[in-house]
C-alpha cells in the first residue's frame, strides 16, 4: 500500500503523541483523555452520548451543551471547563479547539495541535442538516480520527424529509391508531420532533417519561419543540391519532401495551436493513441517523484530506478497504464499548 505520508520519511511516526487505548484516546503532551470509558483525571468529551461521556472524571472539558447534558444525566460533575466552538485553548503542551460535529446538541470534533501536527478527533458526526445543532465544519488535518458506525456502502441514508413524510402519512392513514416512534432520547428524539414541526405537524406530541428532561434541556438551548405532553397512566389509552416518542428499549416493552394499537416505528440508520427492522418488530422503519452514512464518511475524508485516517469504531474493515483503494494510509484503533445499536 502506498501511503500518503511517505513523502516525509525523516519525521517521527505521525501522531506518535496520540496514544489510542481500548478505553479511549490519551494525548500525552497534554496529559488528558478524549472520551475515556473509565474515570480519569482530565477528560475532553466530544458529546453527551453515554458511550462517549462517562461519569466520574475529576475534570471535564466540553462544550456548554455537552456539559449541560452530562449534568442532566449524571448530576454535578467535578471541575468543568467550557470549550466554546472555535476558541483555541492550551492544555499542557497541546493547542485544543472544539469545532461543531453536527451530531447532537453540543457535539464537537476536537482539533489538537502539537509541534506543527494537527489531529482532528471527530467523535460522532453527520453532514446533513439538523435543526437542533450546529453543522459539521471540515478541518483539514494530518490525522483524521473518524467514526465508522455506518461504514459500509449499503448505508446511504435517504432524505430526512421523505422519512418524516412517511411517518405523517402513516398517521393520516391510521386515525384509530397511534404512531409510536422509538428514538434515542438524546438528539434523535428532539431532531424528529423538530422535523415533524417543520413538516407542519402542530398537534401535541406525547413523550415517554425518559425523554422529558432532555427535551426541556433542548428547549433551554433554543429548540422550539412545540406542544409536548407526557404519556400518563390516565391518558395512555386515549392517544389515537397521536405521535408518541419513546426510547427504543420501550418499543416492545410492557409500557407500550396499553397504548391504542400503536404502529411501531423506529428512527434509526439501522432501519435501512430489513432484518434489523424486523428484529425490532418495527412496522414502520424510519431511516434517520445522526451518524454519517457511507457517502458522508468518504466525502469527509476526501475533504479534510488527512495524511492518515484512524478509525475509532463501527465497520472499520470496509472503510479501511476504501482507504486502501484510494491510496490513503489508514488504521483501526479498536476502541471498546462504542457500538451504537440504536442510533
Amino acid at each position: 500500500m502506498i501511503g500518503r505520508g511517505s513523502h516525509m520519511p525523516n519525521m517521527v511516526t505521525p501522531g506518535s503523541w496520540i496514544k489510542p487505548f481500548p478505553q479511549g484516546i490519551y494525548v500525552e503532551p497534554g496529559d488528558f483523555w478524549i472520551d475515556p470509558s473509565a474515570p480519569v483525571d482530565r477528560a475532553l468529551v466530544t458529546h453527551g452520548h453515554a458511550d462517549h461521556a462517562r461519569s466520574g472524571h475529576k475534570a471535564v472539558m466540553a462544550t456548554s451543551g455537552t456539559l449541560a447534558i452530562m449534568a442532566v444525566r449524571y448530576g454535578e460533575a467535578g471541575v468543568t471547563q467550557v470549550a466554546d466552538y472555535g476558541t483555541q485553548q492550551r492544555v499542557g503542551d497541546v493547542d485544543v479547539r472544539f469545532v461543531p460535529a453536527g451530531h447532537v446538541l453540543g457535539s464537537a470534533q476536537i482539533v489538537l495541535e502539537h509541534q506543527g501536527e494537527r489531529v482532528v478527533v471527530s467523535g460522532d458526526y453527520k453532514r446533513r442538516p439538523d435543526p437542533t445543532c450546529a453543522p459539521f465544519e471540515p478541518v483539514p488535518c494530518d490525522i483524521f480520527v473518524t467514526e465508522a458506525t455506518f461504514g459500509l456502502p449499503v448505508f446511504r441514508h435517504p432524505d430526512t424529509v421523505d422519512e418524516i413524510a412517511k411517518a405523517l402519512a402513516t398517521l393520516a392513514d391510521n386515525p384509530d391508531r397511534c404512531v409510536l416512534i422509538g428514538a434515542y432520547a438524546l438528539g434523535k428524539a428532539q431532531r424528529v420532533i423538530m422535523e415533524l414541526r417543520a413538516a407542519g405537524h402542530d398537534a401535541p406530541i406525547y413523550l415517554h417519561g425518559a425523554m422529558q428532561k432532555l427535551c426541556d434541556l433542548y428547549r433551554e438551548f433554543g429548540c422550539d419543540l412545540g406542544d409536548l405532553r407526557p404519556v400518563t397512566a390516565q391518558n395512555k389509552a386515549d392517544l389515537r391519532g397521536a405521535i408518541i416518542l419513546c426510547p427504543p428499549s420501550a418499543l416492545n416493552d410492557r409500557w407500550a401495551r396499553a397504548l391504542p394499537d400503536p404502529v411501531t416505528a423506529m428512527a434509526s440508520g439501522w432501519m435501512r436493513i430489513r432484518q434489523r427492522a424486523r428484529q425490532r418488530n418495527v412496522e414502520l422503519p424510519l431511516i434517520l441517523s445522526d451518524h454519517a452514512d457511507w457517502d458522508e464518511l468518504t466525502q469527509t475524508i476526501r475533504q479534510v484530506d488527512p495524511g492518515e485516517v484512524w478509525i475509532t469504531h463501527g465497520r472499520e474493515d470496509a472503510l479501511l478497504r476504501w482507504c486502501a483503494l484510494h491510496q490513503r494510509r489508514a488504521r483501526a484503533l479498536d476502541l471498546v464499548g462504542r457500538e451504537d445499536e440504536d442510533d
Partner: peptide, 24 residues
C-alpha cells in the same frame, strides 16, 4: 460497479443478495 471486496463485506452484513444489490 462496486469493489468486489466491499460487495462481499456488504453482502455478509446484509445477508440477502437482492437487498445488498438494491442498496449498492
Amino acid at each position: 460497479r462496486v469493489d468486489p471486496e466491499l460487495f462481499r463485506m456488504s453482502r455478509n452484513y446484509v445477508g440477502d443478495l437482492a437487498e445488498t444489490c438494491s442498496l449498492l
